[in-house]
Design a protein around this nucleic acid. Structure first.
Length: 282
DNA sequence: CTATCTGTTCTGAC
DNA sequence: TGTCAGAACAGATA
């Protein structure tokens, strides 16, 4: 669920609400979610939030960091003094902690940060700040669009593999941050069929796909993230990008492109829902 | 009730 | 090394 745009929005929200706060306590309700010693965070002040692909690192003044991966259904929800009066929150997030709350960070000023996760795939790791970059998960991440990937680099990656281009886009060790929703949308935007082997794309298509990836990621952020299901921002509010999906979750509906009579197809690729228009994507 | 679906990543098999 | 199925888990939907 949370892909680059959603995690980036979360990063901005956390920066706004918890940077500067000192941690007074941690309540670990589901131990398997947390690794490292949670007590190390106590007394630390949040000095910054970093994002690595879809992972976040909450960096503390005491030399430790809280690395968080939300996987499919994780949520980080802030409740406290800075939260706006009027927010539109899910009914099941009105009462926190809830039965899906696994970790609670309490700040000295009384504010709280809740880690909720319906499916419990996500994780939290307490480690020295200097080790965040060397985590296997982080050090293996490929370049990130919008930051350290240009058309040339993108071209190079596509040429190197003969896999279906969609699974390549979602491979975090090749390109980081793109997940299923944005891969589907970017391929539609570029008119490229998801099952095309990446090294068979021509230069023009590659260029187009590159710009489409940036475009859909930026759009995702512009509309507050994609909340077809699990994603909520740091205040617990839904995003709006799902209303702008052109193929994802639109099986059987008519193609969004003007003048195209195609119907959005759904197939399975690499075990994931793959949506495309046979007419527009070659 | 059963079967199948779900946005991520890791492991183990080939 | 590259690729893929299955697992981790809980709930929604058909």
């Amino acid at each position: 669920m949370p892909e680059l745009p959603e995690v980036e929005l979360l990063k901005r929200g956390l920066t706004k609400y918890i940077v500067g706060l000192a941690i007074a306590g941690v309540d670990v309700r589901t131990p398997k979610i947390v690794s490292g010693d949670p007590l190390r965070v106590i007394g630390g002040r949040v000095v910054g939030i970093r994002r690595f692909g879809k992972m976040l690192s909450l960096d503390l003044s005491n030399g430790h960091s809280i690395a968080v991966h939300l996987k499919m259904t994780g949520r980080l929800i802030y409740r406290g003094k800075k939260q706006p009066k009027k927010i539109e929150v899910d009914p099941n997030l009105l009462e926190l902690p809830s039965k899906h709350t696994h970790v609670i960070f309490s700040f000295r000023n009384g504010d709280k940060l809740y880690y909720n996760d319906l499916r419990k795939f996500g994780w939290i790791m307490v480690i020295p700040t200097s080790e965040v970059k060397t985590l296997p998960f982080v050090s293996k991440l490929g370049p990130e669009p919008l930051r350290d990937l240009d058309v040339r680099g993108f071209h190079e990656i596509l040429m190197k593999y003969s896999r279906p281009v969609k699974t390549l886009l979602m491979d975090q060790e090749r390109i980081s941050g793109v997940g299923n929703i944005y891969a589907n949308e970017a391929l539609f935007c570029a008119g490229v069929a998801p099952h095309r082997k990446s090294n068979t794309l021509d230069k023009a298509s590659i260029r187009k796909l590159y710009h489409c990836i940036l475009k859909v990621l930026r759009n995702g952020m512009k509309y507050g993230g994609s909340s077809t299901d699990a994603f909520r921002d740091v205040l617990g509010q839904r995003g709006g990008y799902q209303e702008h999906h052109l193929v994802y979750d639109r099986e059987g509906q008519s193609c969004a492109r003007r003048g195209c009579a195609g119907i959005v197809q759904k197939v399975k690729m690499g075990g994931r829902g793959t949506y495309f228009c046979h007419n527009c994507q070659k």
